[in-house]
Amino acid sequence: MSDELKVPTMADYMAEGKQPEVLFWVGSAGSFDDRAKKITKAFVKILNKANVDFAVLGTEESCTGDVAKRAGNEFLFQMQALMNIEVLNAYEVKKIVTCDPHSFNCLKNEYPSLGGNYEVVHHTQFIQDLIASGRLEVEGELYKGKRITFHDPCYLGRANNEYDAPRTVLESTKANIVEMKRHKLNALCCGAGGAQMFKEPEKGDMDINVLRTEDALKTKPNIIATGCPYCNTMMTDGIKAKEKEKDVAVLDIAELIANNENL
């Protein structure tokens, strides 16, 4: 097992007069949600293992405002965005990585016209690059031959056309990747987007996450892989609703890689 996590802040770097290679945007879920915090830590372990010079904003980070925007509150979104942009620009941030596709989409597509121009990547893209450039070697065989199905997050997939990075990273574990009938372009939402995460669903016949979990279970998976903290929560709840938590694990791609490498 690894030593203590190294998580320097931008303020630390600034004090030393240095710039990290990338800013890790932890996001509200990654900071506060118990399940998502594990994903955050898994990703940090990967960054530490690959000797990536990264920093977080720590207490200077605030909600991107994405969820407020999707709920219709453009005021609150822009207030959050402009405050964050002030901080990010003050630190002269160039590149941002995040485990949350919603933050990813918002920072990448909606911050530029407000004055925040950064290269923004999703953690699955970042890990893919680490592997491709030889900075991270995936050698473990924990998941070799295991049936893993990947649930595409809407804001990584359809919203930003990234379908390959998560799959390429999964392939590095030599797992048996099985696709759901609805995948990539046709993937079904987990039900959390558009601020649904924070409210009860409207009246209907069933919950969206249960329907999506049924999609996943049809592939007879050992593991459902996710790339979004909200999808993770929704799929985990779906698995509980189907009483399958003993048979099927729901894990983020960062966790899969960290576990695989015994980090």
């Binding site: 998580v7 207490t59 909600c63």
Partner: peptide, 16 residues
């Protein structure tokens, strides 16, 4: 408090 949940912004790095 800068998060969709009622947590203090000053606790944002506690996960570490």
């Amino acid at each position: 408090n800068g998060a969709p949940w009622p947590y203090n912004q000053m606790d944002r790095l506690n996960w570490k």
